[in-house]
């Protein structure tokens, strides 16, 4: 994957006017999340980590995002979303049931636990889940498609894109209080916004400029 914003690190702005104290507290806590697992069993944890690794393969050149730890923390604290589909179990139960079901399906079809499958085979299993083709009593009445779309994608995406690594990767300005922004027109960048390396340009120039984006 090309790095569109080489060298851009949104965390360099931590001590600038773009971050108020409430933001620093929130992001500091996020970066020191409990490594887990406190909610999941060790078997569930292995499956979960493997699953997260395929839903969002981690970047090689930036600090990894502890996606599974965020999900474990959310389930441990029972922080719910404000709704639950009638066919779905409560979020923690749903995760435990589905991880067991996914692992069982892997063992049945490929004779290996899910987390030991090669990535390509893990992707096949995930696609089966997404297409509602994983069924059976272990799913406890939950359509696997619904679980995938509304639990897996929801929790994994919310975890990954809540982390500064993901913000830097997409060139987002990140926290912006109280400084905000001045230049609102197209192709106009405030000095505290990421520089994009256009494909035809040198990555090095953008990398050098991004060191000064604070």
């Amino acid at each position: 994957m090309t790095d569109r914003f080489p060298g851009y690190d949104v965390l360099l702005k931590r001590n600038t006017l773009s971050w108020n104290e409430a933001t620093r507290r929130a992001i500091d806590a996020r970066l020191s999340v409990h490594p887990g697992p406190r909610f999941f069993s060790s078997d569930e944890w292995k499956t979960l980590r493997a699953l997260c690794g395929r839903i969002i393969p981690q970047p090689a050149d930036r600090p990894p995002v502890p996606i599974a730890a965020y999900i474990d923390e959310k389930m441990f604290a029972n922080r719910v979303d404000g709704y639950r589909f009638a066919q779905m179990l409560p979020q923690g139960e749903a995760w435990k049931a589905a991880l067991a079901a996914l692992d069982a399906a892997a063992r049945e079809r490929r004779k290996l636990p899910f987390h030991e499958l090669p990535p390509a085979d893990q992707d096949v299993m995930i696609s089966l889940m997404a297409e509602n083709r994983l069924v059976g009593p272990l799913w406890r009445g939950m359509p696997s498609q619904l679980f995938f779309a509304r639990r897996v994608l929801h929790d994994v995406v919310n975890a990954y894109y809540s982390h500064p690594t993901a913000w830097s990767e997409i060139g987002w300005g990140g926290p912006a209080s109280p400084r905000g922004y001045v230049r609102l027109d197209a192709d106009r960048r405030d000095p505290w916004e990421a520089v994009e390396a256009h494909p035809e340009e040198e990555q090095d120039r953008a990398r050098a400029e991004n060191r000064h984006v604070v």
Partner: peptide, 22 residues
């Protein structure tokens, strides 16, 4: 003093108690 510049932290503004949707 209470509001962070953050999508996740600020879910504290929402009504996140359970509702069943169908």
């Amino acid at each position: 003093e209470d509001f962070a510049s953050d999508e996740t932290e600020q879910t504290k503004l929402y009504w996140t108690g359970n509702r069943i949707v169908e």
